[in-house]
């Protein structure tokens, strides 16, 4: 059946809750309202108030109580309404969720998922368009997953729920409904810690994730004469650098696209790995096409700020003609 990302995530939640009585969904407006983006629509009716918890408006509370539930042995899937509101709960992530296994030498663990709509492009208010994935990647003990399309979202979320460690699952809301594709009805998993080679090629490697993947694929399609290998990172932590390194060794050129701010952004990490493991294969400096080290502007300037299809095409051409 053809589903968009909201429907695919909703289906994954329904199926995992059915399969495992320990899966609990909690967050602001996730029950009666079905979530502000309708991702949790229908769950309350199916699984009742004990397993679908409309919580008080408190992000630290949502994440902190999820840690307690996970320590008990449940598998909480917490929703933070927008990733820009995660920070009051960030203390719980960096001080506890990510460390409990280590602190207790494996006696306790924290198998939980924190889902949050993330990144820009929907003409939203301030704080609703941020891309701060790097802070989670930089936090030892967390896993970070960002799907780019409905099929991936379902398989990756199921894997995240079944994962024994805390997973930050960032959902690019710009493509929540922008892509509709065939998604199998039955449950399936996609491995965490594995990049996806979306398109094979041998002239240049283009690495991206999240909402930018759609633009990258459009850019590559328009550059008919270029044989580009396109890699969707999918799991930022742990990072499967092997797939990226092997591709760069083959193509000798690389462009990385993300909408997050540039300095210490995820592209910087990929460049460091290429530097460590494939430097001598490079024919040109690796280019990053990213957001800037500013606050993401409101909608009147958002299109100028965010990487565009043309900016990506230009970047690819620049690296190819070096």
């Amino acid at each position: 059946m053809k589903l968009n990302m909201v429907e695919a995530i909703n289906l994954a939640l329904k199926q995992e809750m059915k399969k495992d009585g320990n899966v609990i969904v909690l967050g602001e407006d996730v029950g009666v309202d079905g979530g502000v983006f309708r991702v949790t629509e229908g769950l309350l009716k199916l699984y009742g108030e004990k397993r679908v918890l409309d919580t008080p408006l408190a992000e630290s509370g949502i994440i902190g109580t999820s840690i307690g539930m996970a320590a008990y042995g449940l598998k909480p899937v917490a929703e933070v309404q927008f990733s820009g509101f995660m920070y009051p709960g960030f203390d719980q992530l960096i001080s506890h969720a990510s460390r409990i296994r280590n602190r207790s030498r494996g006696m306790f663990s924290c198998p939980m998922v924190v889902r949050a709509p993330y990144s820009g492009g929907i003409r939203a208010l301030e704080h609703h368009s941020e891309s701060m994935e790097a802070i989670y990647v930089h936090t030892p003990g967390l896993k970070v997953v960002i799907p780019s399309r409905p099929y991936d979202a379902k398989g990756l979320l199921i894997s995240s729920i079944r994962d024994p460690d805390p997973v930050i699952f960032l959902e690019p809301k710009r493509v929540y409904r922008a892509i509709k594709e065939e998604v199998p009805e039955e449950e399936y998993t996609l491995p965490l810690g594995k990049c996806n080679v979306v398109k094979e090629g041998n002239e240049i490697t283009v690495v991206s994730y999240g909402a930018m993947m759609k633009l990258v694929l459009e850019a590559v399609e328009k550059l008919e004469n270029v044989s580009a290998e396109v890699i969707d990172v999918r799991t930022l932590s742990p990072l499967d650098d092997e797939t990226i390194i092997n591709s760069v060794k083959k193509t000798g050129r690389c462009v990385i696209v993300h909408e997050a701010p540039r300095s210490c952004g995820f592209a910087a990490e990929i460049i460091a790995r290429i530097n460590e493991k494939a430097l001598l294969s490079l024919e040109a400096p690796v280019k990053r096409i990213t957001g800037y080290d500013t606050v993401i502007p409101l909608a009147k300037l958002e299109n100028e700020y965010l990487p565009s299809v043309k900016r990506i095409m230009h970047g690819i051409e620049e690296v190819l003609s070096f």
């Binding site: 630290s60 994440i63 902190g64 307690g68 449940l74």
Partner: peptide, 21 residues
């Protein structure tokens, strides 16, 4: 827990889990 007060939420979450189960 060394950070102050953060573990109180864990206790409540654990208690909520007891209610659920």
């Amino acid at each position: 827990s060394i950070p102050v007060a953060t573990h109180l939420l864990h206790a409540v979450g654990y208690g909520m889990a007891c209610n659920i189960k």
